[in-house]
Computed example of a mutant assay.
Amino acid sequence: MNKKIVPILALTLMMTLAGCKSSGTTNSAVNASESPQSIEAATATPQVTVSPNPSKTPIAGTSNKPTKVAMTGVTAIRLADAKVGWIGGNGWIAHTTDSGKQWQVQYEGSGEIKQLFALNGQEAWASIGDEGKLLSTKDGGQHWTSAGRVPNTAAFFHFISKSEAFSGNAHTVDGGLHWTNLPVPDGITGDAYFRDAKNGWAVKPGKDTVDVLRTQDGGKTWNRVMSRKNAASLTGTVIRSAGENDAWIELIGGSGMNQTSYSLFHTKDGGKTWQTVLANSTAGGGIAPGFPVGDNTGPKNTGAKPGPLYVVSPDVAFMGGQCLSCDKPNSIGLTKDGGKTWENGKETFTGYGELLLGMADANQGWLITNDNTQPSVMYTTSSGGANWAKAHNFDAPK
């Protein structure tokens, strides 16, 4: 064997094993590498997106009559509490009041349900298709009404009141009728995340670095609050927040051989200090983003690619992992101390499609697995992810 090949094979083997490594502990917090520095926002004047006039007449649903719709391929999930919530699929929305044991289809139409969001057991919203058609309900889903359209359909959309919501940097104060684009810096990767009208976060790659930016004035000014050396390609980001000074930043790197490298960082103090929560390098995707060559310090999530991230509080977060070469490819990991330690769940689940996760609190939540040839399956936990019980088998794909 060529002697030059041996080190490469050894490195590949180490990175492959790292993709399925178990729980770990980060010994100390990561400080931002430099003092906050102001970043100029995009100079374009924020534009107003005017939605088509919504209909005040409820859209014909099926909440009070039998339905023949097949509940296959669940695409969206949202809990109001541990018992009450909604799921959606291709052309349908369903509702449960008993933690998923029984489901009632409330809406039938065209288009895939992309996202669901609920303020409580009565008020909820759904986005449909790539065009972002927006539906809303005020009576627990008995009637769904057209509410306009959601811009930035790939971004996470969330309501913070009956009238105010965000989708990336798009902002509405009239329930989705009109949207204003809040200013963000040029060149960011993925979508910015605004917790409210003042506080937002974004990620921007630099030369051999990756920077986390924060605004506290609605995007007028942005400050660099973390800058890390980076040897990876940055292909995406996921940002969540559980408080004004709280941010969870997932960096998504390269992919190959059904593997994707990624990392997760967390701050509780507005970016003054950072915790490395996860650092998942893989053979196919390369080094995890936010690390220089030769450094991969941090706990590892199970699986070879990231699943859904669900943040409950500044201390508690859950994240799925997927190993597409495994018989049971899906798993759930979690932290209950803000990312200082990471615990990988002992249970694994079948299904080679998208994994969906929703939590009502630190202990109670729902998990749905999907597959192209097998029915979607729902599981519930009341033990903070330590144990999961099968709650429902959905209809088989046709």
Rank of each mutant, 00 (worst) to 15 (best):
G168E: 00
D130E: 11
W144Q: 08
F166T: 00
D217I: 10
G132I: 06
E131M: 01
F157V: 09
W222T: 02
D174W: 14
N152E: 07
G141R: 01
M226T: 11
W201C: 04
G219S: 13
Y193A: 02
F194E: 01
D211N: 07
N169Y: 00
K229T: 09
N230V: 04
M226H: 14
G148W: 03
R228S: 14
D139E: 12
N230F: 08
V225P: 15
F166V: 00
H171V: 05
K138L: 09
N181D: 14
D130H: 04
I128Y: 13
T180S: 15
D130V: 06
G129E: 01
G129D: 02
G148A: 03
H143Q: 02
D217A: 05
I128S: 06
R228L: 15
I160Q: 14
R224S: 13
A170S: 13
G175K: 06
A124L: 05
D139T: 03
G132N: 10
K198C: 11
G218C: 08
S136N: 07
R224V: 11
T189G: 13
N199W: 12
D191K: 07
K229C: 06
D196P: 13
K207L: 07
L177C: 08
G200Y: 00
S161F: 10
H178K: 15
N199T: 08
D208Q: 11
H178M: 07
M226L: 14
A155M: 08
K138I: 03
D208C: 10
D208W: 03
V210C: 04
A231H: 14
G148V: 04
G176C: 05
A155W: 00
F156S: 08
G187Y: 01
A154D: 15
H178L: 08
D191E: 15
L182Y: 01
W222S: 03
G140D: 00
G175I: 06
W144K: 03
I188C: 10
A202L: 10
D191S: 14
N152M: 09
K198I: 06
L182K: 15
I160K: 15
T172Q: 13
K138Q: 12
A165E: 01
P185L: 14
T137I: 09
G129R: 04
F166M: 07
Q216N: 15
R228H: 10
L135D: 03
S227E: 15
